[in-house]
Amino acid sequence: MKIEGEHLLPATRDRVWAALNDPDVLVKTIPGLKQLTPTGEDAYDATIELAVGPVRGTYQGKARITDKTPPERMTLAVEGGGRPGTIRAAGALTLEAQDASTLVQYVGEVQVTGVLMSVGHRLFGGVAKQLAGVFFKALEREVHQRADPEPVR
């Protein structure tokens, strides 16, 4: 299943790139991310706890940045699973500077197995879109905070 979307962030491309590569930022922005442990260069182990309606699960996964061209583009491979099923995804993020803002576009191919797929296939695309929306909104808050630290008076 293909998922794609885009989000305009009100920050420069360098700033957005830095945020996307900062584990501290990712922990605060990825929905349900409980733990992110670096396991090597551009490789992480992640634990995600998500509840979508009555479907609650803890998912263990590995994420690897397979290719990156700062501050324009990175490709990612994600593999994970939990009780409701497994997910394998590969995708690319591209950052395009637009004046003082940055357009982030994502496109990926996701494979889902288990009950997650047999029951959830008609919901999956929508859930992915919704979670991406939550992530980008949180990311927007993060880059904004980092960009304009509250002046101390």
Binding site: A51, P54, V55, R56, R83, V115, L116, S118, V119, G120
Partner: peptide, 24 residues
Amino acid sequence: GHDAKILAGGQSLLPMMKLRVATP
């Protein structure tokens, strides 16, 4: 908390529990 779910008729929840997609 996290382990509980309200049953309000159950016409969506119970099928999901039977398929073990939901396991409150």
